[in-house]
Write a protein that binds this DNA or RNA. Structure first.
Lengths: 234, 234
DNA sequence: ACCCTGTCTAATGTCGACAATCGACCGACA
DNA sequence: TGTCGGTCGATTGTCGACATTAGACAGGGT
């Protein structure tokens, strides 16, 4: 039993450290996925996780349910949970759907962007370009996430944001391994600048079109990258 | 212990009767919601359900997790699960989001509709009008569901359909009590005919616009209906 | 009268054990 | 040799009990 480390120290900075085991399990699986400790097709066994973390299977199951509903685990009744293996078409579909949701999210609030907010978006794009040129892929993704959040979170449609964020997380977790192999620094800047430009134009059709197109292309690229890596594996 | 009725008869038509308790719990909660046995704001206690169904809390929790992830239960840690109480704006938001998803789902496959498929859609609309005029509200909803499925399921974007169907189910379960109070029979026919007409026109922008508008208006109406009913309750 | 505090209760969170079931393995038979 | 059927192991499904915690309630201090 290794419940020692919990509740021990760790009360300095945050008042709300992870409380329930369920949340810890979720973070642990995220970590495993992001570090390629778990790969597509792998079975994630409850008892294995329970042993790894020194807890019982109950909170593990709670966490797996949540991951499953967010598309981060494939569930086969009476068999187990597996890291999903997405066909190229399914990858493109996921990004397409993301484009639909985020395109609308941004479009429907484009009128409310203040000049300083648009500048802030510009700043994010600059920073992404710099980070990309310095090969700081992780930083690119972080800033990209901020850019994305800042744009979409102006919208107050909770249902829309729920789906948007779920899908965003899913794609982030499942395809992190292709970061940095998608676009050149110049392309990263140009693509995001096109989105900001569309917002500035206040042309709603154009905004949706640009965002959809962006994700369609990104999805297509990732699908292609996965295909070659699975070919080489076979 | 009332596990008698399980596995008893009921093997004629379906080979796959409900197997796990979890699925039975989900159906049971659906029933309770649809029959107003559970109302918005009510707490759904695990032990109560466990006693009601004669099973332990484990499968109940499995089911509640799923319902929660589908937006059919509000979860408050360490407190419990509640039937969601949606503010008018949130209702509109849900329908808006549904319009976005379904509008795209239909638009992106509009070219593939064959003449006979379009006729089938016409037939659904006719049938809905007839049922509505005969006050068969339940039948209207059933046919409406068929119409909806037939249109959207032509799309093969699994991610898109997943969200579409989740949201469709959520709205179906939560707002069933307003069926029949939304539109006149003539309006029902006219509104759905407009959608089919848009598909026939192959004008993609128009298709998305019509579907979005349809759900926006429906959501607005339901939000208004809920507001008056909650006013009268207060 | 108001608020702060300690207790108490009822609900969720977690546990270890047992049951049911899927899939792999292996041997018998055509 | 290939296929069918039974056995077996590993994994999920379910159970009842215990631990923990949010919220209600009462009592005392101001």
């Amino acid at each position: 039993m290794s419940t020692i480390d919990r509740q021990a120290g760790m009360k300095k900075t945050m008042d709300f450290v992870k409380k329930t085991y369920k949340d810890q399990v979720i973070d642990y699986i995220y970590q495993l996925l992001l570090s390629n400790g778990l790969q597509p097709g792998d079975q994630v066994k409850e008892s294995w996780l329970a042993q790894q973390m020194g807890i019982s299977r109950a909170p593990i199951r709670e966490a797996m349910k949540e991951l499953m509903m967010n598309g981060l685990l494939d569930y086969r009744p009476q068999v187990g949970n597996f890291i999903p293996v997405l066909l190229p078409k399914q990858i493109v579909d996921c990004y397409t759907t993301r484009g639909i949701l985020e395109g609308y999210a941004v479009m429907s609030v484009c009128d409310s962007f203040q000049a300083e907010e648009l500048q802030r978006l510009d700043h994010y794009v600059d920073a992404m370009g710099s980070a990309a040129r310095e090969q700081h892929h992780k930083r690119v993704v972080e800033i990209g996430g901020d850019f994305h959040d800042f744009m979409t979170n102006k919208n107050e449609n909770v249902q829309l944001l729920e789906y948007t964020n779920r899908l965003s997380l899913k794609l982030h977790i499942l395809f992190c391994r292709y970061w940095g192999r998608l676009y050149t620094p110049a392309e990263i800047e140009q693509r995001h600048r096109a989105i900001v430009a569309a917002i500035r134009s206040l042309d709603k059709d154009q905004i949706e079109k640009v965002v959809r197109q962006h994700y369609l292309e990104t999805g297509t690229k990732i699908a292609a990258l996965q295909e070659v890596s699975s070919d080489s594996a076979a």
